[in-house]
Design a protein around this nucleic acid. Structure first.
Ligand code: MN
Ligand code: MN
Ligand code: ZN
Ligand code: ZN
Lengths: 151, 151
DNA sequence: AGAGTTATTGAAAACAGTTTTCATTATACA
DNA sequence: TGTATAATGAAAACTGTTTTCAATAACTCT
């Protein structure tokens, strides 16, 4: 089994520009509301709920509406730029999309997210298909705990 | 890595009796509503939402209320007899609680659930703790696909 | 730059899932 | 069998999310 490999954050400002460009080049207009949501989420090191994004986004765009947060997330998800994470409490949050096959490590206290590779589940998955008769399409692997700053 | 081990269903009727007895011995009264919910969920081989349980439970107890479904699930969860599963679509369903360290394989089409052991993630988890500085408390491992009857 | 087109916005209403309130009913137990 | 009270279901309340719609702002084309 390979060592887990922590993925380092790529430059957050660059990510912001990429997301805005991606929205634009897909025919979406660049508005203050979208800018606010993108700037907050692309530079975050934590998973954020729609309500989080609304609250923080208001500091950048005073007239921001919660509805636009949802609509922007919808577009970003459709473009493969962000993804939803499911939390044990049942609440949904968003993070930058994972690239390729990666998995998550989430802080139960502050929401910090670490991304890693190296789970080596492909082999296990194939055996599970044989044993169960299922045709397996995807898997979730998420670890939960306390980050170094929270314990 | 060990072979994945599919857990076979223990006798469903016996499970029903155990759950009812557990409710009773913890000071909860045995009512028609509780009986209906327990009988349906303890004998199911699929994950069921509160709405599913209400719909199916009505066939056993004509006056069943959705509220009692939620309240019964609350008690069963508290007693460690059932647990929630999170689906990609964000919807919550319930199954018999896993015993010890087990994981899930869910059919995306019909909701059928298989339980397995053998993920061997303890070693991986320890390495991840070292690499990330997190103190890891739990993990989710769920596979999704189509069961043999659905593909 | 200005005018025209239309995508996007936010307020409000609607909706889905879940929880709370409360007067009535059913269970357990003496 | 009667009594105390846990449990019930209808309705209201609440939370997270989506839809509706008239007003606005972003892009395009002179
Ligand atoms: Mn994996
Ligand atoms: Mn495991
Ligand atoms: Zn933390
Ligand atoms: Zn199936």
């Amino acid at each position: 089994m390979p060592q887990p490999q922590i993925i380092t954050e790529s430059n957050a400002r660059q990510k912001t520009l990429q997301w805005l460009e991606s929205l634009q080049s897909n025919g979406y207009r660049l508005t203050s509301s979208r800018r606010a949501v993108v700037e907050v989420l692309a530079t975050a090191d934590q998973s954020l709920t729609a309500a989080d994004l609304y609250r923080i986004g208001l500091e950048r765009h005073k007239r921001l509406g919660l509805v636009s947060v949802y609509r922007t997330l919808e577009k970003l998800e459709e473009l493969g730029l962000v993804q939803r994470v499911h939390r044990p409490d049942g609440c949904h949050a968003y993070i930058s999309a994972l690239e390729g096959h990666q998995h998550l490590l989430l802080c139960e206290s502050c929401g910090r997210v670490e991304i890693f590779r190296g789970d080596n589940l492909k082999e296990f998955s194939r055996r599970l298909e044989g044993a169960s008769g299922f045709e397996i399409h995807e898997h979730w692997l998420q670890f939960f705990g306390l980050c170094s700053q929270c314990h």
